[in-house]
Design a protein around this nucleic acid. Structure first.
Lengths: 213, 213
DNA sequence: TCCAAAATACGCATTTTGGGTGATGCGGCA
DNA sequence: TGCCGCATCACCCAAAATGCGTATTTTGGA
């Protein structure tokens, strides 16, 4: 923004044709310069750790180490390079793994050229370019199940399972709620029968969902 | 797409000027028709439940019921209307609550007109228009940073706490891992000491994070 | 090769849970 | 009025989990 500094980008993509097309697209843009073009993580690793570019345009399906694993490795080393995943994969597995690994954006190879340029600018500016179809999948992550199928718990039971999930013991819950520990036990047993659980952990998992583990 | 069907949209926004500007913008687009313009959820509720539009353009800060709560209400009734949140709020709290409530998109009022039109088309086409700055915050949700503060667990300990978190009993874990239940106990004790926990639920919460509860 | 960490295992005492059974009071509702 | 869901509490017994100590074997590196 301030100066006519060029954005330094490294491409990691094993499809020769695509890699070349990208490089040309980027270099032709004027303010972006492609400082490296590798067909595998192994080929790119050293130079990237030594001279981190501003952005890495990375594929997921690569020979040897995959792009997601490399993304994780880079972020674990606290390298500030932004990573833009550009791939054909649009399944939950790959998307979430990439985002969890620390990818700063996720677009599809089918995206038009100008969208990719825009994505690169966006990611460097601190935004997160995410394909709208991908974004939709990310959203569903926030409201997973329509878990109204589970037997509804009463107010009291809800209060208790909440505390159980936080790690409180029956005795502690009893004190917090000013009731007898026996009553807590009774409520928990009712919860178990409703959720078909036999242990606290089971009940918590069934009620709140398996959790992000 | 198939026919020249107009996209039916309802606006819920309490700022008169903004509401009027939006309505004009939408109607001028040609293929979008604003079928309602309300300054509160209360005013819009009945008509929306009776004749759900394709998309609702909703503010968050409204007099009476807020947009997020209404979003939740709509989704809980399984109404298929898409909800596009357009607000000035860009804090985690509002963003995540809106997404969890079932919003299909989240843009800022500062967005240029054409971006809003594009967002509406996107949301109706099944995509999720999310402001790039907002998307970045969503991404950080996937990377809770730190985590290295916690004492690292050994492979064996990790295996065990994973199973503990799934609700297995020591005896069951022992069988699964072909080791003695006593060994499982020992590992768990070591985990407790590392995580400073005293119960399985505590250990699980400290290791995996309090979870989405 | 030698050390330290990790993984394995037992014993004993105590606390916490889970399963069974039963009981009381309260408030809504047909 | 009587039934039912909900919340409350109690007592018995067994299983599971927890606390503390100790010890051996395996493994991975310096």
């Amino acid at each position: 923004m301030t100066v006519a500094t060029q954005l330094r980008i490294v491409i990691i993509e094993d499809d020769r044709d695509i890699a070349i097309a990208w490089e040309k697209l980027l270099n032709d843009s004027g303010h972006i310069i492609c400082t490296g073009n590798y067909n595998s993580v192994e080929a790119a690793r050293n130079i990237i750790f030594r001279y981190p570019p501003d952005v890495i345009l990375m594929d997921i399906g690569l020979p040897g180490m995959d792009g997601i694993t490399f993304t994780r490795e880079i972020k674990e080393k606290n390298i500030t390079t932004e990573i833009l995943i550009c791939t054909v994969f649009h399944d939950h597995e790959n998307i979430f793994n990439a985002l969890k690994a620390g990818a700063g954006g996720y677009i599809l190879k089918s995206a038009p050229p100008d969208e990719m340029l825009h994505a690169i600018e966006t990611i460097y500016a601190g935004g997160a370019p995410i394909d709208v179809q991908i974004a939709r999948k990310v959203l569903t992550y926030f409201r997973p199940e329509k878990k109204e199928l589970i037997a509804p718990l009463t107010r009291r039971e809800e209060e208790i399972i909440n505390r159980v999930s936080k790690g409180y013991r029956n005795k502690e819950i009893a004190e917090l709620m000013h009731i007898s520990a026996e009553t807590v036990r009774t409520h928990i047993r009712n919860i178990y029968s409703k959720l078909q659980a036999n242990t606290r952990m089971e009940a918590v998992n069934k009620y709140f969902g398996p959790g992000k583990r």
